[in-house]
Simulated scan of single mutants.
Amino acid sequence: MSEKSTLVQNMLIGAAAGAVVSLFHKPTRTALIRDGKAFGLRVQRYFEDPSLFTKDVRETTDKTRDLVQKLTTDVKYVNEKVNQLKATTPAVIESIRETKEKLFTPILDESREEKKGL
């Protein structure tokens, strides 16, 4: 059991060290400060007006639901097209094979006969 806690502890130490090292990069530091301030302002607005939080969650949920619905529709469409291709491909291949046989078999036969005659 102590091995697991040591592993988790070392992972957390490594993650913290990685975060500190990434803060040496000025654009990363600037973005972190900017995003942290924006997050703080958002949290402050939610505390001042909890209905705003509910509204934002509802809007996000609606957008997610719409996206999932659109993706579901798109997946169904692609699935239908794949099934159509699966059904029509053997027929098309057979048609191509028959056409090839009708067109090229006489030409090949003539060519073989000419070679025999030489």
Results as ranks from 00 to 15, higher is better:
Glu59Lys: 08
Val92Gly: 01
Leu71Gln: 15
Lys86Thr: 09
Leu32Val: 03
Tyr46Gly: 00
Lys100Ala: 13
Met1Glu: 15
Asn79Cys: 08
Asp109Glu: 09
Ala87Trp: 06
Gly18Arg: 05
Arg42Tyr: 04
Leu12Lys: 14
Gly36Trp: 02
Pro27Lys: 02
Leu23His: 06
Thr73Leu: 07
Gly18Ile: 02
Thr6Tyr: 09
Pro106Met: 07
Thr61Leu: 15
Thr61Ala: 15
Lys26Cys: 06
Leu67Val: 13
Asp109Ile: 14
His25Phe: 03
Pro106Ile: 05
Ala15Pro: 00
Leu71Asp: 10
Leu52His: 01
Gly14Arg: 12
Glu98Thr: 09
Asn10Glu: 13
Glu94Phe: 03
Lys37Cys: 02
Lys100Gly: 09
Ile96Glu: 01
Thr6Gln: 11
Lys55Asn: 02
Glu114Ile: 13
Leu52Ile: 02
Thr105Arg: 05
Asp56Cys: 03
Thr61Val: 14
Arg112Glu: 11
Gly14Leu: 10
Lys116Pro: 01
Ala16Asp: 07
Lys37Phe: 00
Lys102His: 05
Gln9Cys: 09
Tyr46Ala: 00
Ala91Glu: 11
Glu59Arg: 09
Thr64Trp: 06
Thr88Lys: 15
Lys37Met: 04
Ala87Thr: 13
Val8Glu: 05
Leu71Asn: 14
Lys70Ala: 08
Asp74Glu: 15
Leu7Asn: 14
Arg34His: 15
Lys63Phe: 14
Ser51Cys: 00
Lys4Glu: 07
Asp74Phe: 11
Glu48Ser: 04
Val75Thr: 09
Arg42Pro: 02
Thr61Met: 14
Glu80Gln: 13
Arg58Tyr: 07
Gln44Gly: 03
Lys100Asp: 11
Arg45His: 01
Glu114Ser: 10
Leu7Asp: 15
Lys116Leu: 15
Leu12Ile: 05
Ile13Ser: 02
Gly14Thr: 13
Ile107Gln: 10
Lys102Arg: 12
Ser111Val: 08
Val75Leu: 13
Gln69Asp: 11
Glu80Arg: 12
Ala15Gln: 07
Val20His: 05
Thr88Ile: 10
Asp35Lys: 01
